[in-house]
Amino acid sequence: MVEESDNPAIQVSQLGVTFPGCVALRNVDLQVPKGTVFALLGENGAGKTTLIRVLTGFTQPTSGQCNVLGLNPVRDAVQVRQRIGYVSDAPAMYDWMRVDEIGWFAASFYPDGYLERYRELIAGYEVPSDRKIRHLSKGQRAKVALGLALAHDPELLILDEPTSGLDPLVRREFLESLLDRVADGRTVLLSSHQISEVERVADQVAILHQGQVRLLDSLQNLRDSFVELTIGLSDPLVSLPELEAPAEVFRSQINGRQQRMVVRDLSPQQLEEVKGWNGVEQVSTHATSLEDIFTACLRGKQTPKTSG
């Protein structure tokens, strides 16, 4: 159940983070409603990890505010981290502890019930509980990290590229765990490169590029509003007029006598118009996958407007 409650799990407004010599985040606005899966996409260095570090209180923003579960991560970082489940990329763990031991150790920091749930999760993931962590494979380590983050049933899960470098089976298990949580009404903020996975599970998607939010919308809207337009021309040298607002061209490629564009909010009238343009022989539309949208967004020639 998607509840549009008054308080979103995460609220970020006009967030900016500047390090000496580089602007990591700029004017970021977003809201993550409770009970949804929010996907954060962007290429390496776009600012995803920085944003997550701000949300978890590991980095101080230079401007703007943010709010996680009603708490201010700048002031109450420790509290925030106690209430959420956070899996960073390459999570640090005590190599010398056994799988069961590390759960027992982590249980000291959480209320009752942690250890039982952890054991259930670990049994479900089929990770040997008496083996030392340094002797686990990468996928098993990731599962242990996930188990540790889920065992206290946090209202908000923040995952920073948790499945990078893992085999498809493990990735599938991660997804299943996530979705299990969402079914209970928990919120998930997922930063990932596996766009095909994101496409299956995201409710909302934000694409970050060079520290700014380029696109922010529900996955459904994105799918509905984007279209791939292929125009067959009679003459390669024909120059086509620009499409007027509200349509936005995110990317445009020319190959011989064909021109292909990724367009957003193309109205049916405009489509008819295009068919009637000079030199246009054929027009076909195709649905875009999230990956296409992502590529178009990042490689597009025009600077698109951001939308909320």
Binding site: V78, V80, Y86, S88, A92, Y94
Partner: peptide, 15 residues
């Protein structure tokens, strides 16, 4: 050593 303190930091253990 290997930034193992992050394990505690990530879980909101008070410094």
């Amino acid at each position: 050593h290997k930034h193992q303190v992050r394990f505690l930091a990530d879980r909101g253990v008070s410094p």
